[in-house]
Amino acid sequence: MKQSDEGASRYYTAGYDGVARFFHWLVVLLIAAQFVIGWTMPDIHKGTRPEGLIAWHLGVGAALIAAVVLRIVWRVVHPPMLAPLSPFLRVVSKITHGLLYLALLVVPVLGWANASSRGWSVKLFGLLPYPAISSVGSPVGHEMGDIHGYLAWVLFALIALHFAAALFHRFILKDQVLQRMLP
């Protein structure tokens, strides 16, 4: 490898530090857990109690909110080096990442609003209670639960697009973009 190629390789792979990669993979694990729990937990109706898988969904959701907020703060304070992309791919990447971050915040916050409207407590690690963000019995808070479910599918689609883009970079473009997020 020529010296200029080595420098380019360092440029590609130096994009994300260990903390950013940790938050990325933590969010991946929490989202995977949420989708599995969400698909297998019982339907929520009037009078449903936050027990079993529903309690797990609330707890993992609380951890997800914390992880996403910390991830966003870390990214703002420690922006990654930009990957050398074409102007088109740079725009697509910015839009996709922006929508992912938005969905990663909005979907769990809507679930939190729905839980609040049911009088359920949302706690980080089962200890630190989050404040209620809708009043008990709020019709808007209840409606947030339906929107939460629909937008979870949008989030799933964005994740699939993100994953497909990583594979596109690895196997079609054969660049080092994927390696920037691998340990």
Results as ranks from 00 to 15, higher is better:
M1N: 07
E6C: 00
Y12E: 14
Y12T: 00
Y12N: 06
V19Y: 15
W25Y: 08
L29D: 03
L29K: 01
L29S: 11
L29I: 15
A32Q: 00
Q34K: 06
I37P: 02
G38A: 15
W39A: 09
W39I: 07
W39G: 12
W39P: 00
P42Q: 11
D43L: 10
D43G: 05
D43W: 15
H45V: 07
G47E: 06
P50F: 12
L53N: 03
L53M: 13
L53A: 12
W56K: 05
H57T: 03
H57Q: 14
G61C: 04
L64M: 11
A66S: 10
V73P: 02
V76G: 13
H78I: 01
A83S: 08
P84G: 04
P84R: 07
S86T: 15
P87R: 12
L89H: 08
H97T: 02
H97V: 02
G98Q: 05
L99M: 07
L100Q: 12
L102P: 10
V107E: 08
P108A: 13
V109H: 13
L110F: 03
W112P: 05
A113E: 07
A115E: 05
S116T: 13
S117Q: 05
S117N: 01
R118S: 12
W120P: 05
S121R: 12
F125Q: 09
F125L: 15
L127Q: 14
L128T: 02
L128P: 00
P131L: 08
S135W: 13
V136F: 13
G137V: 05
E143H: 09
G145T: 08
D146S: 07
D146H: 12
G149N: 12
L151K: 02
A152S: 14
V154G: 12
A157E: 06
L158W: 05
L158C: 05
I159E: 04
L161P: 04
R170I: 09
F171P: 06
L173H: 06
L173Q: 14
D175H: 08
V177S: 09
L178Q: 04
R180C: 01
L182Y: 03
P183K: 13
